[in-house]
Structure formats: C-alpha cells, structure tokens
C-alpha cells in the first residue's frame, strides 16, 4: 500500500489531526521554502562543527572526513550556519 502524504479529504483526517506514526515530520520536506543555499569551502573549514550545532533544522551532517553538508530536502536557507561560521567557510548562494 502506498502511503498518502496528506489525507485527501476532510473525512480521511484523523480526529484532531492526530498522528499515530512517529517521525512523520521527516516526510514533510521544507527545502522548498529556500531562496538561498549554503555552500561549504572545505579549504577554509576547520571542522569545528559550529554549523552543525546551530542549524535550527538539524539538517547539517558530518561526512566520513569530518566535513559538513546540509540536507537540501530540509534546509530552509535561513543562513544561520553562514552567520555562525567564524572561519567564513560557508557562503550563501542563490538556489
């Protein structure tokens, strides 16, 4: 059975929009809100992880080498990582 993203009709909604499956916010992709996206310059990155700590969407992850990247399915382009990155390794570019 393919799962619907949204109940199609008001009759399909659970009372009070209750959700019985945990982690459902993962299926809500917020990347479409974005106007700009963060780009990392790994030659400047010192792997401090400040971007990872400050990301309000928790969409920044660390790769095998210890560098960071944003999951663009969820990144809203708020620019907080860019603002907090003190070695200035992050740039915001038009998406």
């Amino acid at each position: 059975m393919t799962e619907k993203k949204w109940p199609e009709t008001w009759q399909d909604t659970n009372p009070g929009l209750m959700i019985f499956k945990p982690g459902s916010s993962r299926s809500y992709l917020t990347g479409g809100w974005r106007a700009q996206k963060p780009i990392w310059d790994n030659t400047k990155c010192i792997k401090c992880g400040v971007c990872y700590l400050f990301c309000p969407e928790a969409c920044i992850t660390e790769d095998a080498e210890g560098f960071f990247m944003a999951d663009l399915n969820y990144c809203k382009g708020c620019g907080i990582c860019y603002h907090e990155c003190w070695p200035r390794a992050i740039k915001m570019v038009e998406d």
């Binding site: 009070g16 929009l17 209750m18 959700i19 019985f20 499956k21 945990p22 459902s24 916010s25």
Partner: peptide, 9 residues
C-alpha cells in the same frame, strides 16, 4: 503507544 497530538496544519 506513540501518538502526536496538536500537530501542525
């Protein structure tokens, strides 16, 4: 029994 109430709409 996990349930979310007062969800975003």
């Amino acid at each position: 029994n996990v349930v979310s109430m007062g969800t975003l709409g």
